[in-house]
Design a protein around this nucleic acid. Structure first.
Lengths: 148, 148
DNA sequence: TATTGTTATACTCTATAACTATA
DNA sequence: TATAGTTATAGAGTATAACAATA
């Protein structure tokens, strides 16, 4: 019986955090134990794998990650030989980030694993519930607003 | 144009984390600047405010928070004079946690603020989209499985 | 032996300021 | 002046082991 008219499991920020944590846990274990990667590292890797070469700045904008975090993640991915950095001629402040063949393999493996985990996660949820869920989350996250 | 068939903003763990972060930010700023509270502290406070007195163990089970985090949050709430701890006669290992009048006031203020932030957040989302969203998140989070 | 709760410790994540180098 | 990226630092969040007291 509730003591107040505020029901915690209906509070969206709480609900989203609990769902995000539950949904991320297995994938997190996978990329950490298998490749020793941290959260920002797989996110950067996936941006390159999904969209092709880009600058660190562009990753920052697409993923809403601060440049200091991306900088450290790129350094770690570089050390693991998953990415290379190439100075651009047009603007020498900018580095073009690319996956190495090894980085591409890791991305391929991780994206397949991600797909498996997601499938397991969504088992039992009707297909158009999932579609509605993604649409609502896209709006809430602001990810639908982040263009080139 | 995508480089792979894996589309990052459709990957649910990523999407959920981005949405959770965006949705939580304002409320987080509110309870931190106004009451110097941390995440686990407001969560514990809300469990007591929403459901009434309970043990730390019960908060752990309901919220899936580890006992070490709850222990530290309770100590902080105790020091702020937001909660009291009473030894129970039946089992002297267990402490009964209760809101003080001051703690109740803080809960009232925070729950009203939470409601305002949530309303702003959901502005523009049709009412039954929100209903579907909550239902899907409840399942994904496992919050629908956590009973007494 | 098992459970409630505490303390210690290490690692990850977040946020900010100050810096280099280029533009 | 402004921007891309780096380094340093502090605070918050997470995870685990070891412990005390009680059952």
């Amino acid at each position: 019986m509730d003591q107040s008219d505020f029901h915690l499991p209906h509070f969206l920020p709480y609900l989203l955090n609990q769902a995000a944590e539950a949904a991320s846990h297995e994938f997190q274990t996978y990329y950490r134990t298998r490749y020793g990667m941290l959260r920002t590292e797989w996110r950067v890797l996936f941006h390159l794998g999904c969209y092709g070469d880009m600058s660190a700045k562009r990753v920052c904008d697409l993923a809403s990650i601060h440049k200091t975090k991306v900088s450290r993640a790129v350094a770690a991915l570089d050390q693991k030989r998953f990415v290379t950095r190439t100075e651009t001629e047009a603007d020498r402040r900018v580095e073009r980030l690319s996956l190495t063949p090894k980085g591409q393999q890791v991305f391929d493996d991780l994206s397949r694993a991600a797909h498996r985990f997601e499938t397991a996660l969504l088992e039992g949820l009707p297909r158009d519930e999932v579609r509605h869920l993604r649409a609502a989350l896209l709006k809430l996250s602001g990810l639908d607003q982040r263009g080139p």
